[in-house]
Design a protein around this nucleic acid. Structure first.
Length: 83
DNA sequence: GTTGAGCGA
């Protein structure tokens, strides 16, 4: 079973991962929420990942691509696995 | 501001 994870881009730098979770909890049960930051500089990269407990939740979230969060239209796509 | 980590054997 693979994870139901989505990529979330165009994030406003002011939000936290828990804010993201609150936003995506509307689409389904959120299993994990992550905000990515550069490990060498410690600065935000402006994107993150959200995994859902069910495929339906992920699917619904992807359909919400372009929904605004803090005034910014989010870029949502199914995440690609790390290599 | 766009697809994540870590550094052991």
């Amino acid at each position: 079973m693979s994870e139901n994870k989505i990529y979330v881009g165009n994030l406003p730098f002011r939000i936290s991962k828990e804010s993201l979770e609150e936003h995506f909890a509307q689409f389904g049960s959120v299993a994990e929420t992550i905000i990515i930051s550069d490990r060498e500089t410690g600065r935000s990269r402006g994107f993150g990942f959200v995994s859902f407990e069910t495929e339906d939740g992920m699917n619904t979230a992807i359909k919400a691509d372009g929904s605004e969060l803090d005034g910014r239209p989010l870029k949502i796509n199914q995440a690609q696995a790390r290599n």
